[in-house]
Design a protein around this nucleic acid. Structure first.
Lengths: 210, 210
DNA sequence: ATGTAAATACCTGAAACTAGGTATTGCAGC
DNA sequence: GCTGCAATACCTAGTTTCAGGTATTTACAT
């Protein structure tokens, strides 16, 4: 079934039906091999200790760790793994966040199977696949800077995890760092942004499309 | 391809990838025939002038006409057509709305292919398929906008105050009630909406424009 | 009148957050 | 070589939230 010349692919989505569908769509193709699939993000990092796929297909919104944080963590540990987001969201800030997290591509779930297959091949060949209008978006962001640029990538990652409802302890587990470190990041975020409570932090996250 | 003893099925979902996946999942089965599929609800009623399927699979949230309204209209004109909802939402009030609209079943998108096939056969045989454990469902994290109607005015007031960064003690002062009462309201809100933390509560407030 | 929902209030223990620190390592820029 | 930032880690003390209860009053509807 699996051969050396096949692309190894991970698929991560908390909708099992979407996974079942993707498996059937991808197994039609001789050059794809689904190395593994997951219905939540937490197990993915562990699985990478055993198998290094060529590409990971991720959803943005998942229970537990969100797709963007997962992408950043994957890229930090294994920069050679390509990441393609397939999400029901199509807002420009979501797409931009995926790009910033280091993903090679973004597709909406309204895409069809042919586009997905095509995009996977492009990304593995080294291309990046985003909707054309992201260039404009990035220029906009430069023209209208906000205090979000005070934050490091790690800090933004932690904000997203807080926003998803994770406690400091859970975040520490997900990122494989100490709970103390997470608390330090929190304090630094508060200081940089002039916040005093979690509610203000989450308000900031929403207002800035994190 | 199509035979008289096959069940004629319509599939309606605005995520083309979900459609592509469902087509492959269902075409594995000899007793199913996908009579037609649609990525929005508007064309469905028109198509019913030419073909009357045994069952229609619907998403709740779609662009154009939403799934529940479509279900009501289908049932009004063709009460013999069975309807199965497959949705990313799992809130009990959403399921209840589907039931009220006359649907024979509801499945979350976290279900797997085997469950879907099984459910389709049950429904066509005349059974109805709803999840029994709606209490557990309410603990899930996905929030549906109409959940807000579960809340009393006082509860919404307290959510707004929490969102503004107030602690239970401050809210108690503002409303001239006991801090214990605020905590009770908080717990009731969590229970009604299936939340477990303040961050989720604030996320809810944002998503619902509170 | 009986049941249900809303709003109120109290108690406790455990978990999580907030705020004040200190401190080391590594890396990029001047 | 020095500076500054990012990321890491630890400590303590105090505050707040979270989860399990119980319980009373008012009010509205079947």
């Amino acid at each position: 079934m699996k051969a050396m010349d096949q692309y190894q692919i991970f698929v991560v989505d908390d909708h099992q039906l979407f996974l079942d569908g993707m498996i059937r769509i991808l197994e039609d193709e001789a050059d794809f091999a689904i190395a593994a699939f997951f219905n939540n993000g937490n197990e993915v990092l562990h699985a990478l200790n055993r198998t290094i796929p060529d590409l990971i297909i991720l959803d943005v919104q998942m229970s537990g760790i969100d797709g963007i944080s997962l992408c950043e963590e994957v890229k930090r540990r294994f920069p050679e793994i390509k990441v393609l987001f397939i999400s029901m969201f199509e807002q420009s800030n979501v797409i931009l966040n995926c790009k910033t997290a280091g993903a090679e591509g973004f597709l909406p779930k309204t895409s069809d199977a042919a586009i997905v297959k095509d995009t996977i091949r492009k990304i593995i060949r080294g291309e990046t696949v985003y909707l054309k209008n992201t260039e404009k978006l990035e220029k906009k962001k430069v023209i209208f800077p906000t205090s979000i640029f005070l934050l490091s990538n790690r800090e933004k990652e932690i904000i997203r995890l807080i926003k998803s409802g994770n406690t400091s302890k859970t975040i520490a587990d997900i990122l494989s760092i100490s709970e103390y470190t997470v608390q330090t990041h929190r304090k630094n975020i508060f200081k940089k942004l002039g916040l005093v409570s979690m509610s203000e932090l989450i308000a900031f996250a929403y207002d800035n499309g994190l």
